[in-house]
Design a protein around this nucleic acid. Sequence first.
DNA 1: TGGCTTTCTGAACCCGTGCTGAGTGGGAGG
DNA 2: CCTCCCACTCAGCACGGGTTCAGAAAGCCA
Lengths: 221, 221
Amino acid sequence: MRLLVVEDTAALAGQLRQGLSESGFAVDMALDGEEAQHLGDTEPYDAVVLDLGLPRVDGLTVLRRWRAAGRAMPVLILTARDSWTEKVEGLNAGADDYLAKPFAMAELVARLNALIRRANGVSKPELVFGEVRLDTATRSVSRAGAHVRLTALEYGLFAYLALHAGRPVSKTELTEHLYSQDFDRDSNTLEVIVARLRRKLGDGLIETVRGQGYRLQPASA
Amino acid sequence: MRLLVVEDTAALAGQLRQGLSESGFAVDMALDGEEAQHLGDTEPYDAVVLDLGLPRVDGLTVLRRWRAAGRAMPVLILTARDSWTEKVEGLNAGADDYLAKPFAMAELVARLNALIRRANGVSKPELVFGEVRLDTATRSVSRAGAHVRLTALEYGLFAYLALHAGRPVSKTELTEHLYSQDFDRDSNTLEVIVARLRRKLGDGLIETVRGQGYRLQPASA
DNA sequence: TGGCTTTCTGAACCCGTGCTGAGTGGGAGG
DNA sequence: CCTCCCACTCAGCACGGGTTCAGAAAGCCA
């Protein structure tokens, strides 16, 4: 899952980048509103973490413009400790959730995961595909009851497919959401990862649609 | 489904071609208004993606001329970020939908699919023919509840027949809409594909009208 | 009915895409 | 500094799918 983090104070920005990367997100940073605006318009993020009170263009303005232009990605705003108004204004401007500073990284991660899930029309944190079970809350995968160890990328790829089960997902789309910024085009890393996933989770789960990408059959309840 | 994409800036043109091809469209490109005009007048497109603000002949002019000449194919215009006027003028000139740049490829694909569907008088994204079910949103086909794997051409052919169910569709029409640019005329690929479709989806679904083409019985609710 | 055209379908071909095993490099942790 | 693990590259191979071809079947018309 790929995130845009908009935060101007260097210290917090660093913490966010590290913490979120460790939690398996691909993270792009924006230091001011202008940059944020641009990135949010051009790159396909799964969610945005937006600190209000930025230099140049205000965070709320950025958010309003996104929504006006029809960008629907979930946005979580970071508000000052007890600024009641900030929070209300933010939600009115189209934010999907908020978190008061200071906060625990674990909490942020949990909320982001929930946001991304809901944004893709999945209400429960657990998805089942045959004998394979994906728990987005704990980032764990099991097969026939037994826990399966997945690497960061393996999990990321599988989770993305799971959230978009039923439709074929192209490789370019996958790279866009698994990696931050650009990435070497002609490379077969994804195929390698898919191969490993198939070995770990069983053949027949991830279907390849030639020329179009990969597809997971929709969850069976 | 065959598209005409009119876009002058190389970068965006490349993205569009790739993204739309990946999504299963046959794509023709036009780099300026003149070329666009000509192609739109001579080739039978299922939809057009038109960037306003082209060199030579302006996009709006092209669109107006098409409409004046009675070309009815759906046209989606790409407008600059917040150019309110562009959008309004475009719609007045006969555009069917618009998208502000920059945009997400998924959104464009979704809108094009919807446009094409509606242009053919089909309102729902799902079509049912007996025990066969076609979901244009996920590009998936099922028979008696079970998912059926179709190749790109098989799906394209079936989807086109489905959108024009009830009337016989000639082979030349099919090739024109399945392939971009020219294609070797005397070849029986279509017949082969139809045969494969019949095996996968069951006989009696695709009816051949001798000398005229193929026909699908209209959807049964 | 006979001859002609159109369509069907199995088999074979060939190219491109995707798969996979082995090997390299680099970063994190001990 | 060493080790381990993960991401990545590469190259060879397998396979799928679009195409072609040929013979069989089905219509159509005289």
